[in-house]
Write a protein that binds this DNA or RNA. Sequence first.
DNA 1: GCAAGGATGAGACTCCATCTCAATAAGTTA
DNA 2: TAACTTATTGAGATGGAGTCTCATCCTTGC
Lengths: 152, 152
Amino acid sequence: MTLLSPIDGLVDKLRDQGFKITHPRYQVIERVADRDANFTAEELAAELAPVGRATVYRTIKLLVDQGLLCRVVLGDGSICYRSSHLAHHHHLVCLSCGATEDVHLSDVEAVIDRVRGATSYEVVSHRIEVYGFCPRCKGFQSEADITHLHLH
Amino acid sequence: MTLLSPIDGLVDKLRDQGFKITHPRYQVIERVADRDANFTAEELAAELAPVGRATVYRTIKLLVDQGLLCRVVLGDGSICYRSSHLAHHHHLVCLSCGATEDVHLSDVEAVIDRVRGATSYEVVSHRIEVYGFCPRCKGFQSEADITHLHLH
DNA sequence: GCAAGGATGAGACTCCATCTCAATAAGTTA
DNA sequence: TAACTTATTGAGATGGAGTCTCATCCTTGC
């Protein structure tokens, strides 16, 4: 609060874009900026209880649009968020507990470029989620959990 | 109906696994098997009107579990389905009209293998969606559409 | 055929997210 | 500092997607 925190950067960036920094908005940013685990919109709304749900959802969307948060698609298709470190990266997602980690797939760009050359689509982006079991969940998964994973 | 259609293979496969081939179930399979475009669960339920919504959803899940359909995550996070050709592949998704195409990213496996070696996770699967604009939508997208694409 | 048990379907329900709109507060200007 | 403009808020309604319940029905194996 006294010295420059990473939050200040975000706040300034938003203000520069003409967004007002209201109390509720600030609270959301504060909660989200320093967080290393992922979280759902609903969790965040519950934590910030006095702040309206609609506002939490709106602010999350704002932060995603600004690239300060990124959406993660879990194995079951549900959505959660992670604070983004802005560099392009992808996610490693635990199928059991839902934990996430960032992963840098350095060679992927080359692969995507090859798609760009081979298709009539104008390729602008991509999303990659790598699924597995985190160190703590490894060894606990049942066969059944794995059999219906056709994440083509 | 008379000669062996691709549907028969699917039906047999399901029957072998102990699933009953009921009329509603057969209708869903029929509608889904020969389709080359993607579709949402709700669309399918509407088309097969007399078949109950719950049954359509249940059957879709069954077919996904069996690897006969695959889920596609569109740019906005919504879900649709495509008939799977069983070989592992990924999707090219139009951000404008939502059209999809299969794409085979042959080198991706090597990249994922590198993740496998570098992480403490037990990697079992991955999902890749490549986003862009299809030939028909190319040139129509506004800048605004592209600016909030942070699909890390 | 018949019996057994999986499958169906109408409708209620849950969950997530967005919308509405009157009230509020941030930032700006004087 | 006060007034003003306009974006933002929040309670609650609404929408959409998917699941659940449970009595009834139908496939399948015998």
